[in-house]
Design a protein around this nucleic acid. Structure first.
Length: 426
RNA sequence: GGAGAGAUGGCCGAGUAGGUCUAAGGCGCUCGCCUGCUAAGCGAGUAUGUGGGGAAACUUGCAUCCAGGGUUCGAAUCCCUGUCUCUCCGCCA
């Protein structure tokens, strides 16, 4: 959410910077409604002041045993008027917050201008695309042949876009989670968190999933609860409505959670394999930092996520999302894309964003500077470190051998009891 | 699921026959004084949001005692609804 004062005072700038990001009709209405709101508020506060003063007078008169009936009658009218204005004010406030809560974040000045993902510039490439002297197979073929992935039976149990792992597949998924958590906690200074996987409406609104993107979420029937689409949601909301002392910042959290997404509107996309699932595992990095450090922190967070790929020996590239491809809440985002040999392309495996104060204002996460009055929103950041299912898919494809077996990356072996290779399950 | 108790400022905690609550008191914290260090002591300050004035220190209006509604000239206080917490019972991994 943008700050109401900022929108009021910089309407044309807000308009311009958000124009590329979609429907601006709501913003057109803002100015008029906000002017009326402020007018009502002015009159209302005057009347409330009058009521406060006169009520005190009435109390004095009664204490002295004098007659106060005249003032009481007078205040009856004032109170009536206050009630009308209050209702009116509430209506205008609701309209304003309805507009503000649906307004996306303003892109940072360093974000490249562009229309869609084809305009995202590549920041760097690390590692060469894996070369094979045979035709590399897709991870779903490898997984099914090795009998460590079974999409057919998963569909029977749940439906399309659900995973079912067996044997070394299940073990590698678990090993990846542990490997990533260990790396980020012991080498990168993050504190491990295990949050709820189901959250309420306020929490979903705090990070920006609601109200605009309800169709992307799984909602529990008869409950105002939602399955989390990412650990970002519960973890960022840990400090919801809190004021942190400056010296507590920065705060780094890493959390493993399953993630649940409806994938509405992606019918026909990535229908095979682990790339696009209704349920997948992810290790997420979340930071709470002071505004002046947040862009340095973004670079470090990105590096922390890249380290996972480097240690696993997977080729990847980093792209900077352009204005047209930026998510609703983000001010700046880097995507990390891993090389997928069978598809002969890079696929997103991590998304690292700085939200600046956008989520913090929605969720009420503030901090107090030492020796200064007042509070400021913290800056929040997060990034996948990494999407686990996609990492497993990338390992299968990049580490496959001509005979269909898969070498286990060395960094992962300690988490798999020393196992070095995945052979077909009998 | 049944019965009961509760929710007040950073923390503890007073405050229910509605009216100096413009929220006592304590702790903590900040600044200053004092003591050669430390401790103790003394003094002052110490919530959030939003609007006005001021270069600023500051000053001033309104709102906020879990949330939402109601009664009233006036609500932390009375009424209704909801949320959460705690205790006991039942059930349960």
């Amino acid at each position: 959410m943008l700050e109401i004062k900022y929108v009021r005072q910089n309407l044309s700038e807000v308009y311009n910077s958000l124009k590329k990001r979609g429907d601006m009709s709501a913003l057109d209405a803002f100015q008029g409604i906000e002017a009326v709101r402020r007018e009502i508020l002015g009159e209302l506060e005057d009347l409330r002041h009058q009521r406060n003063v006169v009520s005190g007078d009435i109390a004095d008169l009664k204490r002295k045993g004098e007659d106060a009936e005249g003032l009481v009658v007078q205040m009856r009218d004032v109170s009536g008027r206050i009630k009308v204005l209050e209702k009116n004010l509430t209506e205008h406030e609701e309209k304003i917050s309805e507009i503000l809560i649906r307004l996306p974040n303003i892109p940072h000045a360093s974000v490249p201008v562009g229309k869609n993902e084809t305009d995202n510039p590549v920041v760097r490439r690390v590692g060469e695309p894996t070369s094979f002297d045979f035709e590399p197979k897709a991870h779903w073929t490898l997984g099914e042949d090795l009998k460590i992935l079974d999409f057919e039976r998963a569909a029977k149990i749940a439906g399309a876009r659900f995973p079912l792992y067996f044997g070394a597949g299940a073990r590698m998924e678990r090993a990846l989670i542990n490997f990533m958590l260990e790396l980020h906690t012991t080498e990168h200074g993050y504190t491990e968190v295990l949050p709820p996987f189901i959250v309420n409406r306020k929490t979903m609104t705090g990070t920006g999933q609601l109200p605009k993107f309800a169709e992307d979420l799984f909602k529990l029937e008869n409950w105002d609860y939602f399955l989390i689409p990412t650990a970002e949601v519960p973890v960022t909301n840990i400090f919801q409505d809190e004021i942190l002392d400056e010296d507590r910042l920065p705060i780094y959290f890493v959390a493993y959670t399953p993630c649940f997404r409806s994938e509405a509107g992606s019918y026909g996309k990535d229908t095979r394999g682990l790339i696009r699932q209704h349920q997948f595992n992810k290790v997420e990095l979340v930071k709470f930092v002071t505004p002046e450090t947040s862009y340095d922190e973004l670079e470090r967070l990105l590096n922390n996520a890249e380290t996972v790929l480097q240690k696993l020996g997977l080729p990847y590239r980093v792209v900077s999302l352009c204005t047209g491809d930026l998510g609703f809440s983000a001010a700046k985002t880097y995507d990390i894309e891993v090389w997928m040999p069978a598809q002969n392309t890079y696929r997103e495996i991590s998304s690292c964003s700085n939200f600046e104060g956008f989520q913090a204002r929605r969720a009420g996460i503030r901090f107090r500077r030492k020796g200064k009055k007042g509070t400021e929103p913290v800056h929040t950041l997060n990034g996948s470190g990494l999407a686990v299912g996609r990492t497993l898919a990338a390992i299968l494809e990049n580490y496959q051998q001509a005979d269909g077996t898969v070498i286990i990356p060395e960094a992962l072996r300690p988490y798999m009891g020393g196992q070095e290779i995945i052979l077909p399950r009998p």
